[in-house]
Amino acid sequence: MNKMLIKDEFLSEEDLSLSEMGDEELEAYWNFWLELAQSTNEEDKELYSHGVFVQYPVSNHHERNS
């Protein structure tokens, strides 16, 4: 393969296609993605995605699960 044609790739084709979507299509895709993402709620219930907290306190796991 010609090295000059290789470009660093950061994101997937699905992500990159967002820039080509109109507002309606983006809305539909975004909301659909949020619905699908609910399937991981149990796995990530103790976690934080942003901010200064990373995980629900370990000592509180028993209280959370009761």
Binding site: M21, L26, Q38, S49
Partner: peptide, 17 residues
Amino acid sequence: GQAAVLHRIAVMSKDGD
């Protein structure tokens, strides 16, 4: 994450910030 969506870069976060 939701700003990344609005910039049409990626959908990869469930939470709002």
